[in-house]
């Protein structure tokens, strides 16, 4: 009972935001590790994609949890933004926010909003056709179709550009969100230095790795 009551408090709501963010970071890592294989091995990428697309645990347990996690993180983010804006009441006529806090930390709702728009496009590009293929048209399973589907999407330079810009905003979001989530969890300040370094490495490596994959397939095919 006491445990559940944590989430009624402001700290608890922030904790939920932090935990769902860390969950999405874990998902992002595994997504990247699978996608990067497409750069050097069509077979490995097809094998892993086929596994992820057909394994019942992934499909019917992990995928719904992931979708819930994504929706939860966005809904909670917008909800907290509304509460926070109400807490200000009247706005300042002049507010020099940039003098004491970086842009990325003050505009998480904006960078997160861009990532949300990207996710809608991403679902339209990959998830909707996948659901249609498997559960609406019931087409016969082809374990070698995934690589072709991927490179087909990145033939378009406009889509490649949209994906790249979106991942830059994801990087900006992670540069603050990754380390902030650990502070919210209550990690001791003696670990802030390694967390800061890890945040920087992760926030650059993963989003720019995704950009590399998109640009690579656009240029190579």
């Amino acid at each position: 009972m006491s445990l559940i009551s944590i989430f009624k408090s402001s700290i608890g709501k922030k904790l939920l935001m932090a935990l769902s963010g860390i969950f999405l970071v874990v998902f992002l890592t595994q997504h990247f590790l699978i996608n990067i294989t497409s750069v050097f091995s069509e077979e490995i990428f097809n094998f892993l994609s086929h596994f992820m697309g057909n394994n019942p645990i992934v499909q019917f347990i992990l995928q719904p949890i992931l979708i819930f996690g994504v929706i939860f993180h966005f809904v909670m983010g917008f909800y907290l933004e509304i509460i926070n804006r109400k807490s200000r009441g009247a706005n300042y006529t002049r507010y020099a926010g940039g003098d004491n806090a970086p842009w990325i930390s003050r505009n998480m709702i904006f960078s997160g909003g861009v990532v949300l728009l990207f996710l809608i496009l991403h679902f339209y590009d990959f998830w909707v056709p996948e659901m249609n293929y498997k559960y609406i048209e019931f087409l016969p399973e082809d374990p070698n179709r995934y690589y072709e589907e991927l490179i087909h999407k990145f033939e378009s330079p406009i889509r490649t550009l949209i994906y790249s810009v979106s991942f830059i905003f994801l990087a900006l979001h992670l540069l603050h969100g990754f380390s902030s989530s650990f502070k919210t969890i209550g990690v001791d300040s003696k670990y802030y230095k390694p967390i800061k370094s890890l945040t920087f490495i992760f926030s650059i490596l993963i989003p720019f790795g995704f950009i590399f994959i998109a640009v690579f397939h656009n240029l190579m095919h």
Binding site: I6, S9, I11, N84, D99, A101, P102, H176, S180, K183
Partner: peptide, 30 residues
């Protein structure tokens, strides 16, 4: 409102109170 760890508070605090106290309070609360 809710803290989003921007760090603006510790920059403006006339007594230099560190934001690390917020993480400590969170721990105490949990």
């Amino acid at each position: 409102g809710n803290c989003t760890n921007t760090g603006a508070c510790e920059v403006e605090c006339p007594k230099g109170i560190s934001i690390k106290n917020i993480a400590r309070m969170n721990r105490e609360f949990y």
